[in-house]
Design a binder for these strands. Sequence first.
DNA 1: GATTTATGTAAAGGAAGCTATACATGAGCG
DNA 2: CGCTCATGTATAGCTTCCTTTACATAAATC
Lengths: 67, 67
Amino acid sequence: MPVKNRLRVLRAEREWSQQDLAERLEVSRQSVNAIETGKYDPSLPLAFRIADVFDLAIEEIFLRDAG
Amino acid sequence: MPVKNRLRVLRAEREWSQQDLAERLEVSRQSVNAIETGKYDPSLPLAFRIADVFDLAIEEIFLRDAG
DNA sequence: GATTTATGTAAAGGAAGCTATACATGAGCG
DNA sequence: CGCTCATGTATAGCTTCCTTTACATAAATC
């Protein structure tokens, strides 16, 4: 039921560290790391903020997991 | 920071009760009611399931709130 | 070798999402 | 009136999200 995401790739394309992204999202670095490593999914409001900073649709970043 | 949603309208268009929608989403009726009445936002996985049952994109159902 | 940067991870605690159970109201219908 | 259905609300409890603080490792730089 969890959701896969392309955060690591999108971040690499922009050469942002986890810290950089965390600051843009106004969350802790640990939250960014946890989302990237699949420990948990972001909340919907955070998913929207992530979509905003990457200027993409939520569906372009987060993908329904097979299962 | 919360997110607005068009659940009530979409549900009305399909003539689904909160109970009907809850069953399609496999969540409790209270969860559907709480989301509709703005008590809280759905998790991202649930937002995806909602998008699926309405056959819409997340952005077509949930809207960034002004603020 | 010492320092900095990026990343992973852990523990404890608070906030938010979700559950089951329950009760209340109003609308519609016999 | 009595019954059913749809909706709103409440409480308690569990799980998930997110925080702060902290420590560990590897790579890069000096």
